[in-house]
């Protein structure tokens, strides 16, 4: 019996070493350790072994069973690893230089710049408002201190409509409505499409975007306006900008300013961008005219405030280096698809 066990041991060892596939291992397991396996048979047959040798045989057989189980596990693992190795080594090398199919569209540059600005303003407590594109003469002109036949109407060529309304020439057309809607204190911006009856060229469009802002509170001073504009523009351009105010005439503010920023490209030395002046004219602003406040239901004795206009089209052009205003309304995807989404 002992010989038989030793013989089984040799047999199993040889079979195991010849095995190359997980199926072979399974067969070996069944042959020796299965319900009717050769080693199991021996263990079942112990009662027929003479009593004096029974213990020795049992020990030998049990040892063999344990050794074999372990060897089978090891061999299994070894074969599995080999099989994976083979699988991995034979895998197709993937070409990642093939371009991705993104199918990502694009937002209009105005939308992108507008969103950026809105986020800055919202963080400063401004409400975002929305105006109409067709406006009444009252809202576009009278309510912002430009009565009929005022020479300032020549400053903007207006598209008049057959019913006496007009295509709004300036975002200021929303000032009156916003003041009446919110009262004081007021912090609001109102972006929108504006229209001027002009021939198109690289720097003139009949349809363009502005963003206007108003801030009204008690004792708002010119010094506050300068501080605010400087802070705001530094946020917009993501660096500290130097600003200066010059007198500018806009009927809805008094005093009115043209705000220039020190050229961001040359730092004021003079270059092509600033036409060698060192400064870039960026946005009209001013202290809101008392008449405008009055018409908006706000007492100018108690409250004062400032308003400012930002040329969204212009800022979008600056951001992307677009040198022809007409690109923005071209609907040409060859241009527009170059824009991103954020």
């Amino acid at each position: 019996m002992i010989d038989k066990i030793n013989d089984l041991k040799a047999q199993a060892k040889e079979k195991l070493s010849n095995a190359t596939h997980s199926m072979d291992i399974e067969n070996i397991r069944v042959e020796f350790l299965g319900k009717k396996g050769k080693i199991i048979e021996i263990l079942k047959d112990l009662k027929n072994v003479e009593a004096s040798k029974r213990k020795e045989v049992a020990t030998l057989a049990n040892n063999l069973k344990n050794q074999l189980e372990e060897a089978i596990e090891n061999k299994k693992e070894e074969i599995k690893n080999k099989e994976y190795e083979k699988k991995i080594n034979s895998a197709k090398k993937i070409d990642l230089t093939v371009p991705s199919n993104l199918n990502i569209g694009s937002l209009h540059p105005i939308t992108i710049v507008q969103k950026e600005l809105e986020e800055i303003f919202e963080s400063m407590g401004f409400t975002v408002e929305d105006g109409n594109e067709v406006e009444t003469e009252y809202n576009n002109f009278e309510a912002v201190n430009v009565p009929k036949h005022h020479p300032a109407r020549d400053m903007q060529d207006t598209f008049w409509l057959e019913n006496g309304q007009l295509l709004k020439t300036q975002t200021s057309a929303a000032q009156n409505k916003i003041m009446l809607k919110y009262g004081t204190p007021l912090k609001a911006i109102f972006p929108g499409r504006c229209f001027r009856n002009e021939e198109l060229d690289a720097s003139h469009e009949n349809t363009f975007f502005q963003m206007e802002g108003m801030m009204i509170d008690k004792d708002v001073s010119i010094a506050n306006l300068i501080y605010f504009m400087k802070t705001l523009l530094s946020q917009i351009f993501k660096k500290d900008v130097e600003v200066r105010l010059r007198p500018g005439y806009f009927p809805f503010v008094e005093p009115g300013f043209e705000l220039d920023i020190k050229c961001l490209y040359c730092g004021g030395e003079g270059c092509k961008v600033c036409k060698h002046g060192g400064w870039i004219e960026l946005c009209p602003c001013g202290m809101i005219h008392p008449n405008v406040l009055k018409m908006g239901g706000i007492n100018p004795e108690e409250y004062s405030g400032f308003a400012f206009g930002l040329g969204l089209s212009r800022l979008a052009m600056m951001k992307y280096g677009i040198n022809d205003l007409r690109v923005l309304n071209s609907c040409d995807l060859r241009s527009l698809k170059q824009m991103d989404i954020k």
């Binding site: 809105e118 708002v220 010094a223 300068i226 501080y227």
Partner: peptide
């Protein structure tokens, strides 16, 4: 001279607004 006016902050209440 506007250039001679020193920028000044004000004690405005700044509270961020939720987008409509």
């Amino acid at each position: 001279g506007y250039d001679n006016i020193v920028p000044q902050t004000n004690f405005w209440k700044i509270s961020p607004v939720r987008e409509e």
